[in-house]
Amino acid sequence: MNIFRLAGDMTHLMSIVVLLLKMHTIKSCAGISLKTQELYALVFITRYLDIFTDFVSLYNTVMKIFFLGTSISIVWYMRYHKVVKQSYDKDHDTFRHYFLILPCFLLALIINDEFTFREVLWTFSLYLEAVAIIPQLVLLQRTKNIDNLTGNYVFFLGAYRGLYILNWIYRYFTDSHYRRKGITWTSGIVQTLLYADFFYYYIRSWRRNERLNLPA
């Protein structure tokens, strides 16, 4: 494992820790999109179907369990926790997530490495992950006064994507068995580009020491 991959995994982990911290200690999910969180839970469930059959490393298995467990519990917090669910901004989180799920599933049926149940769902999870952030970005644009934890959450998530691309580039040149298919490159890059606009405003507000506010 190279440094980019490890740093990417750690920022991904950090983003989830930040989110759980917000919900568990502050008992708030203000500014967080339930749609995006449900999509991520679906991403992990469909991707890690191999968790009990294909062992890669203890690190991988532990991380998979972590991502599955946390993504499902975040959805639970937002839907059912007595206090947390009250801060959910339902009126602004209106993006229809099945508009993302259906095309991703159709694409996975058409473009995949192997037409098997697990392979199609694994490919589906890659496509869906690429676009799962969209409802969150839409909600951020509609939110006045984005709080620090929400801003940091999206920042860490974007950093994770950027670092994974560096990891792929690194592996492409150093690992002869490693050849990523064009479609996975594409979905990864699409996902990272989605954050570009957010990053611009995040860094600007940080440099000016201002509150993060996205233009409408």
Partner: peptide, 10 residues
């Protein structure tokens, strides 16, 4: 079992 390259990532 052998795991495809991209599948060793998260």
């Amino acid at each position: 079992t052998k795991v495809a390259a991209a599948k060793d990532e998260l």
